[in-house]
Simulated scan of single mutants.
Amino acid sequence: MTILVTGAAGFIGAYVCRELQRRGERFVGLDNFNDYYDPQLKRDRIAALCPGADIRALDLTDADGMAALFDETRPQRVVHLAAQAGVRYSLQNPQAYVQSNLVGFVTLLELCRHRDVQHLAYASSSSVYGDSAVPPFSEEQRIDKPRSLYAATKAANELMAYTYAQLYGLHATGLRFFTVYGPWGRPDMAPLLFSRAVLAGRPIEVFNEGRMRRDFTHVDDIVRGVLGALDHPPADPVPHRVFNLGNHTPVELEYFIAVIEQAAGRGAEKIYKPMQPGDMVATMADTARAKAAFGFEPATPIEAGLPPVVEWCREYFGERA
């Protein structure tokens, strides 16, 4: 059985490929290696985490190229992690989100439908909860008041996948990720931004005057959730389900910074700023549904998960305390 992993050179994708290698699964990956952040980091990531993996340079919106890949590899299961990420960037370049997250997703759905894919597990986001969110965020809550175009595209993905499940019987599972972090992470997210800045003695920007809480979730826990969901396709009459994958333990931003400071061996120079457009003040995952379905239970507190991120930043980027 072949598994297709999209976004395989991305942060979560490369870790998923590493675990598939460990499990002895047959898989092929794809990534468009775009320049949202340095493509060399993506290449270094896959070389370090999943060396020798079959990862093709291909864009989701290349319908002919995608069809040829499906015909060549004939995947029975798909882990769809490719997307244009970033809440704030969606305010600057909305067309990138329309192409990747909407056009590309429909291309994938059509191929899964016509090539008899048994199960599609795809990335959604905790940002879909938007202004309707009431912590802890439950999958039963409404997601019709997004705070960014990025969040709107992820909510749309869930509706599209449900439609294909209802019309065509496509088995699909949406995974709402909550602030994933770990070594080899995305350089535009707070764990790496803050770690690199503190190590180098640069100031960090702390939004909403520091009054923010995030459900930081270690990438190892996320990968267990992704593959747990993939291994348990929905059996509902409409075979579509959505799960939160988070730590269920929101952390105050100031404490998060303090853990980085301790690991770096120096204090942070903080510049306090107002809330950024599109951001959410707090996130917190209710993970009871995922635990019941496939035993999801995150096990990594930030006190254990963050210091290796700081050390990786020190080694990879060369910042020194």
Rank of each mutant, 00 (worst) to 15 (best):
V251W: 04
D220Q: 07
F243Y: 15
V223C: 03
R224D: 04
A229S: 08
R214A: 01
E252W: 03
T217G: 05
L230F: 10
H232K: 15
G228Q: 06
F243T: 14
N244D: 06
L245T: 05
L227W: 09
F243P: 15
T249Y: 10
E252T: 03
V223E: 02
P234E: 11
P234L: 12
D215Q: 02
G246L: 09
N247M: 02
R214P: 00
N244K: 07
G225T: 06
R224I: 00
H240G: 06
L245E: 10
F243R: 12
T249G: 06
V223L: 05
N244H: 10
P233K: 14
V242F: 08
E252L: 04
H232G: 08
H218G: 02
A235V: 13
G246N: 08
A229H: 07
H248I: 01
D236C: 04
R224K: 07
V219D: 08
F216L: 10
R241K: 15
R214I: 00
D231M: 08
P234M: 13
I222R: 14
G246P: 03
P237D: 15
P234F: 11
P234V: 14
H232D: 14
H248E: 09
L227H: 03
N247S: 13
A235T: 14
F216Y: 14
D236R: 13
N247C: 06
H232R: 15
V219H: 02
